[in-house]
């Protein structure tokens, strides 16, 4: 599916906090179902020397393998969910694949600040700043303005085992 990303997530959080004081205590917890999934890319070469890559259950994985982590969301309720933000921390044993969508909104500082990777920097030892790279990504975040009742979708990122 095609993803849309938003840059006004901070505004969305601010709105949520303001609404908190006045909102009635309606349970919204069961509205959304999230399901995580991971597949590993396995390349095989057939008798004709043709390479074929399959996405398979990660029964055997070793450093260097490529994984696809996916989060499937489903709005099972009757109301639309707005300001829908999915946050996925990356395990330190994996790094974001270098061919990941450059439009992904990521954090390189443990989720404190966010942006496209190309716009982020990291401060190294000695206080010098450098452009952030795929190895620096700690979190990925997707923001959807609304998930309608019954809507479902899939958010995914490619990763390499370090």
């Amino acid at each position: 599916m095609k993803l849309k990303t938003f840059h006004r997530a901070a505004t969305a959080f601010g709105t949520a906090c303001l609404l908190l004081a006045t909102a009635p205590a309606v349970t919204a917890q069961d509205q959304i179902v999230l399901d995580s999934d991971v597949k590993v890319h396995k390349t095989t070469v057939d008798a004709n020397g043709v390479e074929k890559t399959e996405m398979v259950k990660p029964e055997v994985v070793v450093p260097g393998d490529r994984l696809t982590f996916a989060t499937l969301y489903h709005n099972t309720g009757a109301e639309p969910a707005t300001n829908f933000v999915v946050t996925n921390p990356l395990h330190k044993a994996v790094s974001l694949a270098s061919d990941a969508d450059p439009a992904l909104i990521v954090s390189v500082d443990g989720g404190k600040t966010w942006g496209r990777l190309a716009n982020l920097t990291v401060t190294g030892e000695g206080g010098t700043s450098r452009a952030a790279g795929h190895l620096d990504v700690t979190h990925i975040r997707w923001t959807l303005p609304v998930v309608e009742p019954g809507a479902r979708g899939r958010l995914e990122y490619p990763a390499i085992i370090r």
Binding site: A28, L34, E79, A81, T82, T87
Partner: peptide
């Protein structure tokens, strides 16, 4: 993964 959202 964690999702946050608003309903009404």
């Amino acid at each position: 993964a964690t999702a946050t959202y608003d309903v009404n």
